[in-house]
Structures are given as C-alpha cells and as structure tokens.
Nucleic acid binder design. Sequence first.
DNA 1: GACCTGCTGCGGCGTG
Length: 819
Amino acid sequence: MPACHSHSLTPPLAAWFADQRGQPQGFQRAAWKAHAEGRSGLIHAPTGFGKTLAAWLGPLDEAMRDLPHDRPAPCRLLWITPLRALAADTLQALAEPIQHLGLPWEIAARTGDTSAYRRAKLRERLPFALITTPESLSLMISQPDFRRRLAGLTTVVLDEWHELLGSKRGVQTELALARLRRWFPELRTWGLSATLGNLDQAREALLGNRHPEGVTLTAPVIKPLEIETLIPQDIERFPWAGHLGTRMAGPVARRILQARTTLLFTNTRSQTELWFQEILAALPDLHGQIAMHHGSLDREERQRVEAGLKDGSLRCVVCTSSLDLGVDFAPVDQVIQVGSPKGIARLAQRAGRSGHQPGAKSRILGVPTHALELIEFAAARDGWEAREIEARIPLHQPLDVLVQHTLTCLLGQPDDPAELLQEFRTTRAFRDLDSTSWQWLVGFITSGGHALQAYPQYRKAHQGNDGLLHFDDAAAARLHRMNIGTITSDPAITLRFASGKSLGTVEESFISRIRPGQVFVFAGRQLELVRFHQLQATVRASTKKHRGQVATWNGGKSPLSNELASAIARRLHHPPSPAPEHRAVQPILDVQRRWSVLPGRDQLVVEFTRTREGEHLFIYPFAGRLVHEGLATLAAARLSRDIGESVDLTQNDYGFSLMAVRGLSLSEALIRSLLSPQDLLDDLLSAMNSAEMARRQFREIARVAGLLAPDLPGKRRSHRDLQVSSSLLFEVFTRYDPDNLLLDQARREILERQLEWTRLKATLDHLAQRPLHLIETERLTPMAFPLWADQLSAHLPAGDAHTRLEAMLARLEQEASQS
DNA sequence: GACCTGCTGCGGCGTG
C-alpha cells in the first residue's frame, strides 16, 4: 500500500476500529491522513461502505491527541445532514467510539425537533460534535454569539452531499460553509456522496474557491447491483399504455411472501395508496404487517412505519421516494420498483436500500406497468454497467437565496458590504457575482428597491455611520428567522377525525371534488368526508362496501433522465447484450417494426396515422417528458399558425404527438419547419404563456427572499388579507421596478426548470442533424398507442375514454397476434 | 391557478 500507511490512528481508536470493522479500507486511511494534513475533500462510496467513519475518525483522532480526555471538549465538529430523521442515527454512530473509549465528550443534535430546553442549553455551550440540518445551521448563524461558541471548530462534514447539490438548499449550504471558512480559515470540509455523474462539480460546490486544494477519495469497491425484472406471463395481452400496473399485483405478492421484509417503491403517492390496497387484498394474512409511507401522511404515522421497518415487525412497506433516504433499514432484504425507474442513479439508490452490509449485493426487482417499460429496466442495467450515472448540476446565482442569507448573516453580526461580497464570491454559486448585482442587492435590502421604498417593512437592513450593514429590528428579525429555508410548498388541507387526530394532507383541488358523504381512499383507509370548511376537512372511517376514489396529488413530474433515455434508445437498436426483458418484449417490438419502424437515436421517426378523431403525427425524440412538452407546444403553435386549425398535443417520456381534425401531412419540409431551432426562444415563450409561468415561479422566489409574510405557525390562512400576495409584488415590480433582478431570476428559473431549456435546445439542434424517417401507418403502433390514449383521456369524460380504450386495446391485441 | 397520474426535503410557535 502506498502513502496511506503513514497515518495511523491513536492506539485506542485503532483498537476499537479493528474490533468493530477489522482492517480499515484504503479510502478511510486516506481520509484520516488527508484530514491530519489539513486538507478537505469529497468522499465517495456506496451506502454501507464506511463513509461515516472515514469522515468521523479523522477529527476524533486529532482531538484525542490534543484535547484532555477527562473533561468535556469544546465544539470541534459540525455534521450537516439533509434529513432530520438521519440526525438520530448519526448521533448513535458518532457516539459509539466515544462511549467505548469512555470519553466525556458530548455529541448532540440540533434540528427543528430539538426541544426549547435543549436549544437553550446549546445556546450556552456547544457540544464536541453537533449534528444539524442546513436550515438549523442558518438559524444558528443568525444568532449573535454563534461564532464565539464555535471557537475551536476544526471540521465540518456534509452528509449526503449529492442530495443537497442541485437545489437551493445546496446553495444555502454553500453560503453557510463560506461563512464558517471565513471565520475559521483552517476549517476542513468533508463531503460524503453517493454515486454521481459529476463528482468534480460536487467538490467545487463543497469547497468553493478552496476546490483546487481538495481531494476526492473513492472507495475502490463497486457495489454489485442486480436488476431483475418481473416478466408478465402473457406479453401479448400486456398493456401497451398505462402506469399503475396493478395486474402484476399477484406475482408481486408472491415475491413478498418469499422475502422477510420488502420495500415496494412506486412513482406517485396515489399509486402507493392503490398498491397498498392491492397487496393487502392479495395477502390478507399479512394484515397489520403491511404499511405505506409517503410525503402526505401524518408524520407520526410515518415515524411509526419507519420504526416498524427498523425492528422488523413489518413485512412490506409500499412507499414513494420518501424512503429513498433516511433511517438505516438493515432488515430490508428485498426492494421492488413498480413502474418506470426514471433514472439510473435513482434505481441504484433504491436498490441500495437492501444489502446494506459491505460485500452484500444490492438487488432490485423491476415491475413493468406497460410493455415498453420492460426495455427501461434492461436499459437501466446497461446504463449502470456502462457507469452512465446522472449528474446533479449545482445552481448558479439564485439571488433569492443570497438575499435571505445576507440578512441571516447581518442578524448574527453587522458587516462590511465589501467583505460580505468577497465572502460570497468564495462559493461556487456566486463566484462570478458582479458588483452591480451586489449593489442592487444591498440597495434592495436597505431600501426595498425602486418600487417598495415607501414601505418600511421591506427595509430590513440599514447602513450605519460605521459603514457596516446592520439588521437590528427585533420584530423583523423574528419574522426573518421564521422564514429561513428554501423549501416552499403550497398550503395543504389537513384531514382529521372528529377526535382531532390528523391523518395527513391532501390538496384542495382533490378534496373539493369530494362531496360530504362521499367515500375516498387515503392513508390506506376508506374515509367518508363529513365536512370541508375553512381549509379543514373532517372525515370518518367508512364501512361502505364500494371503494371510493383514491386520493391524487399534483406533484412534481420527474422526467426520464437523459442517460436512461439514451440507454433505452440504444437498446432498441443496438442492444449491448441480450436481456430477458428484451426477449420478452420482442413480440411487441416486432409489431412496431412491421407496422412502422423502431425509433432510436440515429434517426428521427415520425409516424402519420388517421383515426376517427382526426390526423395524428407521432414523433419520438427520446428526450424526456419535459422537453417533449416544450417541443410539442412549440410545434403545435407553429402548426396551427400554418394550417389555421387548432392542434391538440400530448407527450410522454419517449415522444409527443400532434393531432388536428385535418391539415396534417407527412412532408419533410413541414416537420423540419415545426422543429426548426430558428426563433426558438421567442416562439417558445409566446407559445407557453411564459408570463403566467413566471408569475407563478416568482412566488417561490418572493418567499425565499423574505418578501412575503411567513405563514405564522398555528394561524390559518384567514390572515391572508394581511399578506401581500406574490402576484401583487410581481405586478408592482414589473411596472415600477422592471430591472429588479428577482424578476430576471424568475424568468431564468422558468427556462431551466419548467422548459429544461438547455436540454431542449440541445435536442432540437441534434434533431436538425438527424435524418427523418417518415412513415404513414394504417394503425396506431405500440409506440403511438400510449400517446393516443393520453390524448383521448384528456378530451373525453373519464368513463367514456376508459371504455373506448378497452375496446381499442382488445382490437389491437387481436390484430397484433394475428398479423 | 391549473392539473386531471405525477416526488422529496426544513423551519418558525403555540395549541388542539
């Protein structure tokens, strides 16, 4: 072994390690050594491979060398975790060696869950190691004497750094790190990350301008990942479209019986509700041992389920990505994914919830909900084997976060604007923040800007005679602390029994479709709505025989990742290796090939089909749903301008379709003009009603920047009249302060987040170079069918669409098997 | 305010 040997832990610590884990791994030794040399960096290893000890034993070892062993130690380490639930587990893990060695050094956690009493204690004295969240760290930064209490800090660790990266939470953390490093120039920063496509950028965001001195340490092990797919019995009768996949419930239930504990992931909350019912119905004997977990369930219920997983009393939990991360579930021995994996890293992350011990294999069972999803699982395996892991791109200059953070800093201590700017420029996110923008920001927080200068509540800071910026209005300070954080969400409706017990939340749009007396399914129960009044819904358990409709939410729409989309396109045309999924779906692919061609990445396939509804174009760029939405909107707007007819559109992860009663044709010139990159931005913005989108996006920005009065805890929204709505602010800025940089940010965020501008532009440029393969088909092909079905259900009453779909499906299946 | 399928995450305080 190379230089790694040159650093050895102090004997008692080394003995403890050997006793617990045997030989340290190379990357762990390397981390301890780098830490002892005063370096920082990123540690990258699969779950369960000892990242925690790699980051923890360095500072612990150092403290054992230079601190007395017989009395409490000053604060040396901050450990940042993105999840409250992880704080408790981390606390336990860090405490282990401390307890074993009998050191009187305190470890404590500080999150939103920490009691007022504990917080007061922590305000007196910080422990040797403090575990906290980015938001709580910001809150502490806003306390005037935090810096003094931290004196002696040597190390900060960012757990699950990949989780924060790519979001405003990540930027908030970058800024907090910059502050800590300004206070303590010798501070060492260690980030822990799962597999990620852009480790370099991750380290840049972690270390800011110290990036060049940093190291990246990777565990040399590649955790074996086994992706198996549940192949439908009769592929000829397996649906070409759909997303629920409940016809696979029987075989899935059998798998659940074969394992001790199963985690069953779905892609949406309502799918979780539905599958929970299906599994319960298939396995009535396991009543009480099957549970569900998603983000809209009451927190107590979720914690109960997490505890049940931990102690092994549950056989199966149906969940959404709410269990992607979190408490350590050593007992889980089977992971199932129902529906599209969406991304390679995502599937690997979920698979990693099983086989937690080093050396153990991660396994996941994929369950397709429609025929082509079989290909997706095979493609995810290809992608993993080729190490095509998705990147998480760090954000660039979100000024709303900087407005918030600047005020947070000033709350802690008055500061010189020039020095603040210098500090902020040490982060990756704001490294090229220009002085003009900074001056604008200072003006905005001290005066409210052009539009709001008449309103004192927007003048939060002032520049004193000392030249420093101050924030010392006690009432405003309290409001600011209540507003810290970058996570925003729409108000939700709490469902309660008459007793007051809360079950969780639904959206207003869902509950307002339910009439009192009607039954619906939520949290795995049949509930009858008693009344819905003042944003409170009262329910009671229903004993009615028929099952009501399952709750739905309008959540995020995560598109197929670029990496997985490419892997799918590649597998269709040049499969890198044989795969059972591919063999199984072959009959469907054969139908596609016979009636049309197989779309892929080498050429752009466009199908033209006439149905009873009209004429359809089906186009398959394989660029993910958001991009297809942008392309379809663009093409539809251009087309209807040309033909003077209204054009309907739909999109999914593989492609999009345009439909008009008449006027479509299969001409290369027409298609090329629809998809021309020329005037792209203008056409797109006007087609997508971007003004309205920006107005909506601005709400989040206004919230993060602290322009909206925070929702006071406990108070209902009836205080709305006191609130300045984000919409009004948007109007005011647009009219009286058009140069407001937050407006600009809203436009940028729309472009990147809703329209995936970069990917969309790249797709169009790529399409312009690909040959077109135009083909008129007599019938809807397997690729076209899901798009057509979507369109149908969007335009007809639900029952009607369903009947027609069934009939069409039956006919197509029949034809497919005959031809 | 739009969506009809669509994820997750924190924090403030006082009370049901």
